[in-house]
Amino acid sequence: MVSHRRPSQPVLGVGARVTVVSAAAATAAAALGASHADADPRRPPEAVRAKVDRLYEEAEKATERYNKADEQVDQLRRSVDRAQDGAARGQERVNRMRGVLGAVAGAQYRSGGLDPELALLLSSDPDSYLEKAGDLARAGARHSGVLRELKEARRRLGQVRMEAAHDLKELERSRAAVARHKRSVERKLAEARRLLASLPTAERDAYDRASRSDRDGLPTLSGGAPASERAAAAVRAAQRAVGLPYVWGANGPTGFDCSGLTQWSYAQAGVRLPRTSQAQRYAGRQVSLAEARPGDLVAYRDDASHIGLYVGNGQVIHAPYPGAAVRYDPVGMLPVSSVTRV
């Protein structure tokens, strides 16, 4: 998804770092807005193409928010699973401790009476006794250690359960944010498709040709050699993806969005990249565009809302926008904001 005719100059440097996911989730719907344009065939082709550019750019920025929120959902889901597993293990430990004490209590009862201290240990809420007693010594020297251990196990179990409940609430909020992002992006993309469909075939072809145009004032780049074997492996993977469709929110292996393609390509080289292009720009050492070597990540626009993989000879492989397959394009097709060597 790209905006190809906005007259900004290439900029190299570090942009603002990625905001926290919770803030992005809270503001994404407002950022997208509801600017629906009619696919009016009477509009000048230039105006239609400019509107399509804006929609693609807005959708790509929203996709970054979607990918970040989706990544947060995955992290929270794993955290919830860990907390629930921990709670289950804690409950099993408490149950085992109470079972052992219950056996001792049964033996005592059969022999003529039940130790009051064991009755305390087996009560539904021994903590309440401890609060009143104020001192473990009052529980008796024989069982104070066991009581202390049981109390600590119950405390940890309660804490784990509270953390699990908190993570579950956060997970539901993040899932709702993901759904909002998805609906908003889909509206933008549907509007862009309607506008493009309103153009004559020749104009649609001209739009695609213009999206491949290079920009002036860029350094002359040669082929060069990859900076590492993992960079070379990532390039080979991206080359295998050429021709596969752009699929919004996808990271392979049969379809990709822009950051999904770069993430997948480096995964084939055994390197784990973040999901969003804004995070990927900080996944390594930044170099100048003149120093670019195959395998470097090229981020576009000041907000790094688009990204591609440099493959040498002034070309990148990237997933452009819906309806366009993964392809080679000039590295200067958009304003370059940073080049990152992984």
Rank of each mutant, 00 (worst) to 15 (best):
W248E: 01
A59Q: 00
H166W: 10
G158W: 07
A30W: 02
P253R: 12
L122Y: 03
D302W: 09
R175F: 01
A28H: 11
V104S: 05
P7S: 04
E152K: 12
G113L: 07
L157G: 05
V80I: 10
E186G: 03
Y266C: 11
L101P: 04
A69H: 02
V287D: 03
D167T: 02
E172V: 13
G134M: 08
R154L: 14
R173Q: 15
E186M: 09
L150N: 00
V298G: 01
N313Y: 03
L101E: 03
Y321F: 11
S228W: 01
R161P: 00
A202I: 07
L147C: 09
G224C: 04
R161Y: 03
Y56H: 14
K151Y: 11
D85F: 06
V94M: 12
A269M: 06
R89L: 07
G106A: 15
V94N: 02
A31E: 10
T201W: 11
K51S: 08
R89K: 13
Y328T: 01
E149G: 14
G90V: 00
V73W: 10
A202P: 05
G140H: 05
K151H: 15
E229P: 02
A279K: 12
A299C: 10
Y66K: 04
V104T: 11
R187A: 13
R183N: 10
V160D: 13
A227H: 09
E291I: 07
A69G: 04
A139D: 01
R180T: 14
R155C: 02
T220P: 00
A88I: 07
N313F: 00
D167R: 14
V80H: 01
R142S: 12
Q72H: 14
Y207D: 11
E172F: 07
G86D: 14
K51W: 09
A325M: 02
Q278M: 10
R173Y: 06
Q263K: 15
A26M: 05
L114S: 12
E172D: 15
V316T: 11
P245T: 05
A107F: 07
R285V: 13
H181K: 00
L289C: 01
Q263S: 13
A279Q: 15
D127F: 04
D205W: 02
D40V: 06
G113A: 09
N67R: 14
D81E: 15
W264L: 02
R293L: 13
A319M: 06
S222I: 06
P320R: 05
M162E: 15
R43V: 03
H306E: 08
V311W: 08
W264I: 01
T340D: 02
G223I: 01
T201G: 09
E57A: 14
A324I: 08
T27W: 06
S124D: 13
A47H: 04
P226D: 06
D85G: 11
N67I: 13
E191T: 09
